[in-house]
């Protein structure tokens, strides 16, 4: 996997195709929207989704933690799909998560899905983490207080589509601007919101860039090159072709 560097308010950050953001200067890794226990949340409401999402997400998290060995892990909110999510963790998943977090400084940024800190798990919980000029919060795009402040956020699950030779391809993506990065959702069952949607307008600057997640690397393009998601089967209108010579 090849991470791509990006500079936000003078600091060098790395965007990884797995969907995590690294701040090498701080040996920090940020990850957004794990939505752990989403399937059990749905199951309680009569939609019996495959109960493997937590396991999958943790496996993926374990891989990037081993690979990048950060000292500080920032979870950018909606780490659990709902406030009771951490209580529903299966025993083995809980043990896996605890082992992953052991020895790390862990910051749980609180999200709209999980407004309370997961009491049973290690780490500090807060609405917002300030580290140097960088602000880590769940929802970005509010007015930025100071000119030189950078903002790392999640919440929107951004995805984008690019026009390719063989039609449009849509992927989860990082959405970066001069002073901010919105991370894609990391959870196994988390869908996306198109960066062209009005909700993301304040963050999708014309000068911004999207970084679509690929298998091994990111595919980047300026925001104005993002196209609407591809349509299903289309009917074509093509009449009046010239006669055969």
């Amino acid at each position: 996997m090849i991470a791509a560097p990006i500079h936000i308010v003078g600091h060098r950050l790395m965007l990884c195709p797995s969907g995590v953001l690294l701040w090498p200067g701080e040996r920090l890794m940020a990850v957004a929207d794990l939505h752990l226990e989403k399937s059990s949340h749905f199951a309680a409401r009569g939609r019996l989704l495959p109960p493997y999402d937590t396991r999958e997400t943790l496996k993926k998290l374990s891989f990037v933690l081993r690979r990048y060995e950060p000292r500080h892990l920032v979870l950018l909110g909606d780490s659990f799909h709902d406030a009771e999510g951490h209580a529903r963790l299966a025993d083995d998943d809980r043990a896996t998560l605890a082992a992953l977090l052991a020895g790390l400084r862990v910051t749980w940024v609180l999200g709209n899905h999980d407004p309370a800190p997961p009491a049973s798990l290690p780490g500090e919980a807060m609405e917002e983490l300030a580290l140097g000029p960088m602000r880590f919060r769940h929802i970005g795009g509010g007015p930025i207080a100071r000119h030189r402040e950078g903002e790392i956020s999640g919440h929107y699950h951004p995805k984008a589509s690019l026009e390719t030779r063989a039609g449009r391809i849509s992927r989860p993506c990082f959405l970066a601007g001069p002073q901010h990065v919105v991370l894609p959702a990391f959870g196994a069952l988390t869908g996306g919101l198109d960066v062209r949607s009005p909700a993301l307008a304040p963050l999708a600057h014309r000068q911004g860039r999207v970084f679509l997640l690929g298998k091994d690397r990111l595919h980047s393009a300026p925001v104005p090159f993002v196209v609407p998601e591809s349509a299903p089967e289309r009917e074509r209108v093509d009449e009046g072709w010239p006669s055969f010579p």
Binding site: T164, I169, L212, K215, D216, R217, H219, A221
Partner: peptide, 13 residues
């Protein structure tokens, strides 16, 4: 082949 296509598109842009 999606990844290859995306890479190509990104390079074009």
């Amino acid at each position: 082949a999606e990844d290859a296509l995306l890479a190509e598109a990104a390079a074009l842009v």
